[in-house]
Amino acid sequence: MSAVTHSSDDKRKTYWKVFFILTALTIFEVVIVQAPLPKLAITLLVVVASLSKAFAVGWIYMHLNHETKGLKVILLFPLFVAFFYAVYLIVDAKLQIRRHSNVYVGETKRFWGQRNIEDRQLDEFGNTIAPEAKKDLPSGEHEEKNEAHSK
């Protein structure tokens, strides 16, 4: 709105710069998920990249940089809360299933109609052994890799 201080050519230059950054980060994301890195490292890199992209769109394209502090706080505060709430709950769910996988998966199965989890074998820590480690699968179709328990 009050970008009267910028000449419109400057504005266009910024828009195109953001466009190239967004494209570059998208390519980076698509490439990095196929890289031979630990799953956690890939996840963190991709999440940081996508949050920066979202921030760039909000800040430049939606002109949040030209709004007052009051509007920014009102808009962004609930989203920050939601973000940390989500991180807490998802990490908590992940940790619970690591510690008590037999209990939780049993409940999940009964409640959600989960299939393919009969004949599960637990290692000495109580974690599920990945399906491809077992050779006696009842049907040959379930070949998909399961990385939920690779550490």
Binding site: F83, Y85, L89, I90, I97, T108, Q114, P131, N146, A148
Partner: peptide, 22 residues
């Protein structure tokens, strides 16, 4: 916030399910 709720539900369902595919 609506989208955040959907993504949160997705995240929890996925985190609780060791059979979740790639």
């Amino acid at each position: 916030l609506t989208f955040a709720g959907f993504l949160l539900g997705y995240g929890i369902l996925r985190a609780r399910n060791p059979e979740w595919p790639d």
